[in-house]
């Protein structure tokens, strides 16, 4: 479904990605782990071209999207949902409007169709009683669940999660991870950057360990967590697992 080929990304002089190749099949759940500064978020943001790779190709369903013009990229982004560490709900819109805005303005759904979809998604996220609340009136966990609903409302083919629980208070992490687990059960294709190793082990079909702009090692959760081959992977895991 997604194929990244030889992705390089430079910011000024800093080379953040140094030739990354990654393939994600339909229905697959890929979790990217690694120390901060490894390039995980940048790699994820290259998938929907929020970050333009300095070189390399991003192939979505067989088409190289790095060669597309702006409007074509917008059409691809409709199909790639994204959830951010800093949540980024639209602060001036209530929960319902946050979720219905893109389906109405981008997909051209009617208001009532969009609300129908939003209502059932928000019910599934457990926030059906907060439809008219503003983001500032919600807890961090509720906000992130609304953000997930907002992305799902576009009925994307794949979901990207960029450290979705890193900015949350500890007691709110589980409610967000639970929602993500339920998406996994539904067979959603997902790429997740996270520091939640227990969650990664549980849901991932494949774990990617990144460091210093490279993919150092990849494999099943069992291979990576129980039997890592690369020294850097061993080092990283020994620092974060106890």
């Amino acid at each position: 479904m997604i194929r990244l080929e030889k992705i390089y990304k430079k910011f000024e002089r800093l080379e953040v990605l140094k030739g990354v190749d990654l393939v994600v099949e339909k229905g697959e759940v890929v979790v990217i782990i690694g120390p901060s500064g490894a390039g995980k978020s940048t790699l994820l943001r290259c998938v929907n071209l929020l970050e333009r790779p300095t070189s390399g190709r991003v192939i979505f369903e067989g088409i190289d999207i790095t060669r597309m013009d702006g409007r074509e990229i917008d059409r691809v982004r409709e199909r790639i949902g994204m959830v951010f560490q800093h949540i980024n709900l639209f602060n001036h819109l209530n929960v319902l409007d946050n979720v219905t805005l893109a389906p109405v303005k981008v997909k051209g759904l009617s208001r009532s169709e969009a609300e129908h979809i939003a209502n059932s998604l928000l019910a599934r996220m457990g926030i059906e009683d907060k439809l008219y609340a503003y983001p500032s009136q919600l807890s961090g966990g509720q906000r992130q669940r609304v953000a997930i609903a907002r992305a799902l409302a576009m009925q994307p083919d794949i979901m990207l999660f960029d450290e979705p629980t890193s900015a949350l208070d500890p007691e709110m992490i589980k409610e967000v991870l639970d929602v993500m687990s339920s998406l996994v059960k539904d067979g959603m294709t997902m790429i997740i950057v996270t520091h939640e190793m227990g969650f990664a082990r549980e849901v991932a079909d494949r774990i990617i360990f990144m460091d210093n702009g490279y993919i150092v090692e990849e494999g099943s959760p069992k291979e990576i967590f129980s039997n890592p081959k690369e020294e850097r992977t061993v080092m990283f895991l020994s620092k974060i697992l106890y």
Partner: peptide
Amino acid sequence: GQMEAARSLGL
């Protein structure tokens, strides 16, 4: 992040 979230939805 507001612009990025909007763009990620296809706006």
